[in-house]
Amino acid sequence: MRSQRLLLALLITISLLVTPTRADEPHYSAELIFPLHHQHNHAPGIAELSNGDLIVSWYRGSGERRSDDVAVYGSRRPKGSRSWSEPFLMADTPGFPDCNTCLMVDRQDRLWLFWPVILANTWESCLTHYKVTSHPIGDGPVTWDEDGMILLKPGEFHEQAQQALDQLLANLNRPLTEREQKEVETGMRLMKDPLYRRLGWQPRCKPTVLPSGRILLPLYSDTYSFSIMAISDDDGSTWYASKPLVGFGAIQPAVLRRDDGTLVAYMRENGITGKIRVSESNDDGLTWGPVGTSELPNPGSGLDGVRLQNGNWVLVYNDTTDGRHSLAVSLSEDEGRTWTATRHLERHAPKDGEFHYPTIIQSRDGRLHCVYSYFVDGGKSMKHAEFDEAWIRAGDE
């Protein structure tokens, strides 16, 4: 009898240990993808493969655009695992820096990697490249089927830029600084040169695939501090340019789609407003309306967003106007018109590190996966955070 009671107690204890978490309980877990590293590790991408595995990308080297040893690396996390593989090489153009990365799995379950190759150690000299594989699942390095470049021929946009500049100056209520004036004059001059209109467009945020199958790859230019979309209507076989998003400081767009078909681009502020920039398209990304500002702050740092399976939107961004020490996740229940809940992935003193350039997806099981550059005194890494909507709604502790 005593042995039966002991057995029953043991079974109850085991059942308590393995009882699954309730669906409505907040979930959060996080880990570094690799130990803190002495080199520069930055600008991640993430994708979920068809079998539930996760794969990430980032660039690594002794610097950024001026360092010719910079290459693209990757790591895998098998479905059900909490451990990431050893980093492996994904792309390297010998003698040239390979920088900002993003990933996409298309409707054929092919994995795409997009990144810029820097030709003359300036952002303005880059060309966006891609690699594709139809068999991304496995261990270790990816075996690519093809690679190529996205060559764009944007039309003239000098007049549109002049109108946007006049409006900006009218609302600024102060003269431009000497540095600002020089940057504007240089950008306006180079707009008239077809070579510079075709060079310098590079990725940061993941592509958006529309219900029609159209792919929008968000690109931006440091030549003008504008954004643009590379558009493909044939599953990536060919690409052409949208009209630019002319915002003088509005770069690195993340694109989300409303139920009525309106596209909303949220952009890093690289100018003077201190707010996340925003623009809308009503023709599937071919043309874009005026670039305005949102209510959300931005210190001149990358952001990303995702539409959830239930229709809600999530945006990840540095919620400061100075510094990248705070990284927030905000939730919208009305397709970006208002943001009703915010929680922090990182919240530190201004000099206690940089946590930035997030990329975010939702996996098939409903979990959110955010990867971001993690810079602290001991080195640099990529950090992966897995959480759900309930965790965001719970707010900061």
Results as ranks from 00 to 15, higher is better:
Arg5Asn: 10
Leu7Gln: 12
Leu17Met: 15
Glu25Tyr: 09
Pro26Ile: 05
Leu32Phe: 13
Ala43Asn: 07
Pro44Phe: 00
Glu48Thr: 09
Glu48Gln: 15
Leu49Asp: 03
Asp53Asn: 11
Ser62Met: 09
Ser62Gly: 15
Arg66Lys: 13
Asp69Glu: 12
Cys99Pro: 03
Arg110Trp: 15
Leu113Lys: 04
Val117Trp: 02
Val117Arg: 13
Thr122Cys: 08
Trp123Cys: 07
Val132Arg: 00
Ser134Lys: 10
Val142Ser: 03
Gly148Met: 06
Leu151Cys: 06
Gln160Phe: 05
Gln160Arg: 10
Leu165Cys: 09
Leu172Pro: 02
Pro175Asn: 08
Thr177Ala: 08
Glu180Gln: 15
Lys182Ala: 14
Lys182Val: 10
Val184Tyr: 11
Gly187Met: 12
Met188Asn: 07
Leu195Ile: 14
Trp201Leu: 02
Gln202Val: 10
Cys205Phe: 10
Pro207Val: 05
Val209Pro: 03
Ser212Val: 01
Arg214Val: 01
Arg214Gly: 02
Pro218Gln: 12
Pro218Met: 12
Leu219Cys: 11
Ser221Lys: 04
Thr223Lys: 09
Ser227Glu: 03
Ile228Arg: 00
Met229Trp: 00
Asp233Phe: 05
Asp233Thr: 07
Trp239Met: 02
Trp239Ser: 01
Gly249Glu: 09
Ala250Arg: 00
Ile251Glu: 07
Gln252Leu: 08
Asp260Ala: 13
Arg268Met: 08
Pro290Tyr: 13
Pro290Cys: 08
Asn312Phe: 06
Ser332Ile: 03
Asp334Glu: 07
Trp339Cys: 02
Arg343Gln: 09
Lys351Phe: 08
His356Pro: 06
Asp365Tyr: 15
Ser381Asp: 13
Ala385Glu: 07
Phe387Cys: 07
Glu389Val: 15
Trp391Pro: 02
Gly395Val: 08
